[in-house]
Amino acid sequence: MSNGCGAPTQGGSIDVSTTETVLEGKVLNDGTPVGGAFVRLLDSTGEFTAEVVSSPEGDFRFFAAPGSWTVRALHKTGNGQADVSASGPGVHAVEIAVA
């Protein structure tokens, strides 16, 4: 990985260690993947935590912690959001519909 704090390219697969809580999924518009959306991870109080740009296949991924989160996508074609609850470490899937 790079030394910086910039968001990495999204998509692909990763080996998730047993201690990490990963939230990942796709941004979709009417079922079609939306690339280039700005996907924001908000904590349970609605506070901004992180942001990535979805891959051409609409993929995004966050390394979070157990708890309740909101993922919100912004795109020139529309915005949308979804809630996800991560009970513990592992991969938690979530889809965001934008319109």
Partner: peptide
């Protein structure tokens, strides 16, 4: 979470 010591990097990066 980085401030408190819970995380060592932003949540879009591996820790």
């Amino acid at each position: 979470d980085e401030f408190s010591g819970k995380l060592l990097a932003p949540a879009h990066l591996p820790q």
